[in-house]
């Protein structure tokens, strides 16, 4: 990545307790999560360094209590961090005054919440227009813009409804619309689909991917559902006890789990559905014959892997052969879990 990352955080700490600022100063290096807890503090975020590039979708994944929601709240400074730095587009957000912070949120950030966070006394349209109202846009303009976003998320005709009159999925569409109303550059989604039942969740994920294809925002997406993470992510950061265990592409996480904890997570996953041909290609031996597409998953190539007789199959990206994949390696992944 050559251009400056949209979000860049270095050695970020967030500690909860009676006097975190004093505590972190005297805390010994490499103090473990449990040691900190024994001192009466909770390490919500523990020494996290992570970057999010423009247009990238980073999925933060972990069980409940792992610190993923806390981390994303540090990005938007809903929480003030205890140590380290967070830069948003090159600007240290901890240095912002209250006014500048409000400006940042009014113009650059949008956030979607797990239990929607809708205002119960406002109609769909008024909820969506809320951020616009806060920044003082005039009534006609903001209604027109809100209407646009309401259409975008497919709630046309319901704009006069109150939140309690909508289903969970529809309510979250309102939440999504609201977060998009100001056309943010950075889009935070905190377990947006966890409160929905599985069928609706699937549908909302598709809808979300459609929106993302259209809008191309920089996204930080939180989930505790590994399947969801694999489905959506450009990169996944797996968190445990406030720390990031591994941050990598889905392929790499599945193929090369960095820690025991991550390995356990990936154990049940059907790797053939996650790993792409491109990842297995090595430029040393490009093989011969008809190439396969780098973006195809091993599962999609199953038939070919079984029937082909070549030892090395060429892999092409946009028509250009980038390397060769050993057929045996592909077959191993295919047969490993099933």
């Amino acid at each position: 990545m050559t251009e400056t990352p949209v979000i860049s955080c270095k050695n970020v700490w967030k500690i909860f307790g009676p006097d975190p600022a004093a505590y972190i100063k005297q805390m010994p290096q490499d103090h473990s999560f449990d040691a900190i807890r024994a001192d009466g503090y909770i390490a919500g975020v523990k020494d996290v360094s992570i970057e999010v590039g423009r247009g990238e979708m980073l999925v933060i994944m972990g069980l409940s209590g792992s610190g993923k929601s806390t981390l994303v709240r540090c990005f938007s400074r809903l929480h003030d961090i205890t140590g380290g730095t967070i830069e948003v587009e090159g600007q240290d957000i901890m240095q912002l005054s209250e006014k500048e912070l409000i400006e940042l949120r009014r113009n650059k950030m949008g956030m979607v919440f797990q239990s929607f966070g809708l205002l119960p006394h406002r109609t769909v349209l008024e909820n969506v227009a809320f951020p616009l109202e806060m920044r003082g846009q005039d009534k006609h303009e903001r209604r027109a813009r809100a209407m646009e976003v309401v259409k975008l998320v497919g709630l046309e005709g319901r704009e006069e409804y109150f939140p309690r009159e909508l289903s969970g999925g529809q309510q979250q569409r309102v939440g999504i619309a609201r977060s998009l109303a100001i056309e943010p550059d950075i889009w935070f989604l905190d377990e947006p689909f966890s409160a929905l039942d599985p069928l609706i969740r699937r549908e909302m994920q598709d809808e979300f991917l459609r929106l993302q294809d259209m809008l191309g925002k920089t996204i930080v997406f939180i989930t505790h559902d590994f399947d969801e993470a694999l489905r959506l992510a450009d990169r996944i950061a797996i968190m445990k006890d406030g720390a990031v265990e591994q941050c990598d592409t889905p392929d790499q996480i599945v193929l090369h789990p960095a820690t025991e904890y991550v390995r356990k997570f990936t154990e049940e996953i059907d790797k053939a559905r996650v790993v792409h041909a491109g990842v297995l290609a090595s430029p040393d031996n490009k093989g011969e014959g008809e190439p396969v597409d780098a973006g195809a998953t091993i599962q999609e190539l199953a038939k070919l892997l079984v029937h082909d007789t070549r030892d090395v199959i060429p892999v092409a990206k946009q028509g250009q052969v980038i390397g060769g994949m050993e057929r045996q390696a592909g077959l191993t992944i295919l047969l490993e879990t099933g």
């Binding site: 709240r73 409000i102 400006e103 949120r105 009014r106 205002l119 809320f130 951020p131 806060m134 100001i182």
Partner: peptide, 8 residues
């Protein structure tokens, strides 16, 4: 938080 993120 939704309010804060809306820039209230």
């Amino acid at each position: 938080e939704a309010g804060e993120m809306s820039g209230c």
